[in-house]
Each structure stands twice: as C-alpha cells, then as structure tokens.
Design a protein around this nucleic acid. Structure first.
Lengths: 350, 350
DNA sequence: ATTTATTGTGTGATCGAAAATAGTACTAAT
DNA sequence: ATTAGTACTATTTTCGATCACACAATAAAT
C-alpha cells in the first residue's frame, strides 16, 4: 500500500516531451518557449504536481528542512522555543523536524545521527542532562553541518549559541528573596554539569555574596533529570525540609522543579510564603492561578527560538565557511507574585 | 557547507569491489564469500558507515518514518499523546516527524502535503479547529497512504480512529456538578463542528436531561480557537457572567479553556467554587496546585498515542489493502478536587 | 549558398542504495 | 572433452529531478 505521486516523467510522457524540458518549464527557465511552458504548467497544475523532495534532497544534498533536538516537548519552555523557531522557519520556507531525547544521551545521539543522515540543512540543539560526551556533535560540526545551540549549550564547542541571561536571572531571583526578608535561601537545580546549572548557580552565589550571606553547599540540591522524574524533586525538597538548619526559601531552576516544589510543599502542608518562600524559573502561562501564585523568572523562550533559527539560516546560507561564532544572551524577566512575599512585607525594599 | 557522509561507493572504491558486492555484503546476502563479507563489514564499521535514508526512501518508497499533524504541541494533552506515539514508534524502529497546524487549515494542508511527499509511511492526524474541508486527507487516503485519526476526528472518513469517551467525560463532569448542588451549568467549548465538541456537548445535554434540568443554548459558549487565543476565552467567560440569568457552574471542554476560565474568574474576583463551580477537561500535571485545585476530566493521552501508533503500524505493515476500519474509544477519568465542591457539601451524594 | 547565431528541446550523467541481470571461473558429472 | 552446476562478483537499471552537453531547426549575416 503506497502513496503514488505524479512525477515529471508522467507529465513528459503525457505531453510527448522530454523530462528535462518539463523540468525546465516548471522551473521557469528562460530557454523554454512560452507555448511549451504554458502547456506544461497548466498540465502540472491540473494534476497537482509537486516535486518530490526526497529526490531533490538526494540530488542537491539539501532539504530546506532543519532538525530540532530537545529533551522534552511536554515542557512550556521548550514548546515555546519551538514555536519561535517555527515562526521564522515558516517565513523563510524551511521545514522543521522535531525530536526528543527524553534526557537520554543515547537517544540524543540517535536523533542527531538520524537527522544528519536525513539531509537536514542544520540542527538546533539543546543538550540532554546526561550528555557530557560531545563527540557526536563535534563530528557533525567538523563535517560542516551548521549547528546552533540554545539554552543548554556545550561551552567548548565552536558554534553560534543563544541563551538566557541565567546568571542575572538567578541573581535577581535570589536578591528578590533576600530583599523580601528571607535569610537562608536554598537552590533547587538540575544536573551540575549543564551550562544553565552552572550559570544559575553562579548568579545565586553572587547575590548571596553581595548581600553578605554565606554560601552553603548543603542547601543546593541537584536533580539529575531536572524534574522529569517527579520523585526526584520530591526527594530533594523533602531533603531540604529535614535539614537541621532548614532553609526559609528556595530558588527553583526550572519549570518542572518549580511546580514540583510547590506541589511537594502543598502535600507537606508547608505554607508558602510564610514558612517557605519560592521563586521559580518557569515559562508556564498559568503561574497566576497557582496556589500561591508563583513569583517567576521567565525566559524569553519564543524570542530564543527566533534568534536561534535566524542564526542557523545565516550559517546555512553563508557562502563561506563561518568560523567566527557568536553567543547571544537574552534578558530574563522577574515577575513578583505571592510565593515570595510575606504578609506585611513589601517586596523590593531593603 | 555541507555534511558529507560515507557512501557505499567510497567503500567499494577503497576495497576494489563493486558497489553491489558491498551492498550485498552489508545486507548479509548468502551469495557473498565469507572473506569479502568480513572485509566489507569491518571497513564499514571502522568508517561508521550508515546507509543514506534519503536514497533508501527514493528507492523503496518508504522511510520507516511517520508524520504527526496536531494543532499545537504547547499543550499538555497533545504533548502527552506524542510521547505515547513515540514510545511505540521507538520500540518498532519508526521515526516520528512532528508538525503543528496552529489551528490553521492552510497550515494543516501544507503539513500533510509535505509529509506525504517526504515519503512518510503513514500519518497520525488530529484536525485543526478551522478544518471543515477534508479533501486533502481524502486524496491521500485514496492513494493508499495509511492514516489514523485521533481526538479530533473526521466522522465521515473511512479509517482507523482513536478517541476518548468524550460523551461520558462530559456526562460525568456535568452530573458531578449537578450532584454537588449546582443548578445552572454552562458549557465552555471549542469550535462547534469539531467531533470532540459535538460529543462533549451531547454528553452535557444528556446529563442535564437525565437530571431534569433544561438545556439552554445561551449558556453554551463556543471558542473558535479552543483557548489558543486568550482573549477569546476571557470574552466567553465574561459573556456568561454578564447574563441576566447567570450560570453557577461551568464545564470547560479543554485544557486552555479550563485554565483560561480559572484565570478570568480570578481576575474578576469571582470565588470558586462558592460563586462558580468548575470542572475542566485537562491533562495538566499541576491541577493540584491551581487555586482552587481543579476538578478535572483527564483523557488517557499517552495511551491514545500508543493505540494510534499501533493501529498505524498495523495499516502500514498490512499486506493487503485494509478496508475494515475500527474506532477505539478510551475511558476518561474524573478526579474531584476543590473547584467543584462547595464547603459543607459532600460531592457524589444525591 | 554557406556560415554563424539564436532558440528550443533531447540525451545522458548524477545523487546513494538495491536488485535484476549478466558474466566469470572453477568443479563435477556425463 | 563437453556440459551442467556452483560460487562469486560486475554491470546496469531503477527511484525523481536537475543540469551539462549535444544537437536540430530556423533566422540572420556573409
């Protein structure tokens, strides 16, 4: 059972022309007579002819499609990034193939290989939490496949990159909690080797230092799968709660960690923000209707997707091999809601 | 700048063999001597040879990949369905290409055309709200492309289909509100011609009828884009609130409608459930931490994806054209939380 | 009348892999 | 000695589209 499309041969045979004449007529080549062109175009239109992209890919070694590799699409941040990518791709006539690694290194490798061999013209990649070995991407880069990294980037790879200002985001979050009167602020974050983890941790530390609070490694909790596994978040939060010197606030470094944290605290009947303040990195659209509403650091996800796609197109369409690479840093945005402001305490004041 | 992979020709040249010998050796054909086979396999292994899927697709008119067409991936329900699809596809060695229509008929047509011409072996489709003309799908079906529809299905198209028991879901939701003491229950739903809208509306009506409540068309609000456009939901809810005979509860028919409804009520300072009860169709994982926590009808999204993919594989791998089609109906699940239960009122009793 | 442009169209190679077909070389059977 | 059979390997075609090149027909220039 297979779908059979109309080919250039069918048209050629039907009109008694050669395939190359038909091809040229369809592409509007100047060397074809107006009559023949009209004949071919009308017939092609009637039969709803579409050139076979597979054959074109094979011939031209390009496909006008690009591949996306992310850990999960069931995630506000990534699905918004993808929408940004698509908005630019659609305008420029590129098709987008989305694949998920589910935070598995093996799946990430399989996906990048598949996409590359499928003649995508370029890749947009955000690393899985498991990824430390980058050779699968290094090899593709060496072979000249354009790659732009976003969000979770490999520091040492020479390529265009787009990230949020994670340092600033975490700094803002932490400082906001300090100014709201919290004294012992924990950090709930992802796998320690990810770029975003390091950047956010650095911002968190800097804010503590600038406000003369001691950094305490014991209240930094790393969730290997960034909240993808629910129990992991619960365990981390419970771990914080059972410390002898309990924290009074948490900076959560991702969407799932923020919601997982809120949910765990609710189950444990910890009142937020009275007993525990929270600021979360999240791109959820429903932070308003959380209980309590969640003070959040929002990343410019849609914009990140747009910028990444624009950079990728620039690489793809560049006539010369590009060797000067750029890292774009986009600003985050703090929105104060109830989860970080105790009653009677005005936020923002010192 | 293009990625160059190793081909069968490179191997043939390097080893002084013909391409067909290499091809057969790689495929383990019996007619190749053990020595030659070993030589080729080892060399191919060393160079990390991978057959070019584009060339294979062109030759064999199949690609071991399938296409998904949904309106939006930034949606709990659909991203969970996709995960279900992927879980089966991965096991069976199929690749998955995801595309979004963003509720636009035009994009849906473009996506299906593109996927078909890219030699996907089959399609998994959930219609956009704009779609009424089905000829793009009809043509592909006639040409023998296997298609399985899920969730938003075209009733008249002969094909396998998977849906949730939308009638029952809406019936349960409505009946639960009635039993919780609500007297005038509105219905907030999607575009009227979608299958899910009709099924849910029928369930809603049936529950009203069975409990001797009158059906009132004026408190059924249709949101053309199903909540994709925020203002639309707000407008619908405000419309309900400004009626002379205001409803005291709402059954919301989708994820975005449920959260949009909660958010609008919060902004308007309407207390839920005291002034307005809500039950929402949603697959959100964070219904617990909504304020108030949201009584929900959950659809078996992951399972729906699995079933759809299994059905599609069955169509693809069938030796004979399939003409007997099946519609699988999966059960929904009602979880009672605070948004539908007034203080002092036990839910579930009559 | 012959040569030279110009214009329009056909032939065949190409992309990568697979397979139908065609050899070749050798052994075994008659 | 001739033929049949076996065990390999090579040649060529195929998939759909494009393009370099070849060539034919006509018109214009000599």
């Amino acid at each position: 059972m297979k779908y059979e499309a109309i080919t250039i041969k069918d048209i050629a045979k039907a009109l008694g022309l050669s395939t190359s004449t038909v091809s040229r007529a369809l592409r509007g080549s100047y060397e074809i007579s107006a009559e023949t062109r009209k004949l071919v175009l009308e017939y092609a239109e009637k039969l709803n002819y579409r050139p076979n992209p597979i054959a074109l890919s094979l011939k031209e070694k390009r496909s006008r499609s690009i591949g996306i590799v992310v850990c999960e699409i069931a995630n506000n941040f990534f699905s918004q990034v993808i929408n940004g990518i698509e908005s630019v791709a659609y305008k420029k006539g590129y098709y987008v193939i989305i694949s998920q690694s589910h935070e598995s290194f093996e799946r990430e490798v399989a996906n990048t290989q598949y996409l590359a061999s499928r003649s995508v013209d370029g890749l947009l990649v955000s690393l899985s939490t498991e990824t430390t070995d980058l050779s699968h991407l290094g090899k593709l880069h060496e072979k000249g496949l354009p790659i732009v990294y976003f969000d979770r980037i490999p520091e040492e790879m020479p390529s265009h990159k787009v990230i949020a200002n994670n340092f600033n985001g975490a700094y803002q979050a932490t400082e906001h909690l300090i100014r709201s009167g919290f004294k012992r602020i924990a950090h709930l974050t992802i796998s320690p080797h990810l770029s975003i983890t390091k950047e956010r941790l650095a911002g968190y530390k800097a804010a503590l230092a600038d406000h003369h609070l001691a950094f305490d490694e014991s209240i930094v909790k790393y969730c290997k799968y960034g909240g993808l596994v629910e129990e992991e978040t619960e365990e981390a939060v419970v771990g914080l709660l059972s410390l002898p010197k309990k924290p009074d606030a948490i900076v959560a470094a991702s969407d799932k960690l923020s919601t997982g944290c809120l949910a765990t605290l609710a189950r444990k009947k910890i009142r937020v923000p009275e007993e525990m303040g929270i600021v979360g990195f999240t791109n959820s659209l429903v932070t308003d209707i959380f209980h309590p509403s969640l003070t959040s650091i929002r990343q410019p996800a849609f914009e990140m997707g747009q910028v990444a796609m624009e950079m990728l197109i620039q690489l793809i369409e560049s006539k010369h091999p590009v060797s000067k690479f750029e890292t774009r840093v986009l600003n985050t945005e703090l929105t104060v809601r109830s989860s970080s402001v105790k009653a009677g305490q005005a936020a923002g004041k010192c």
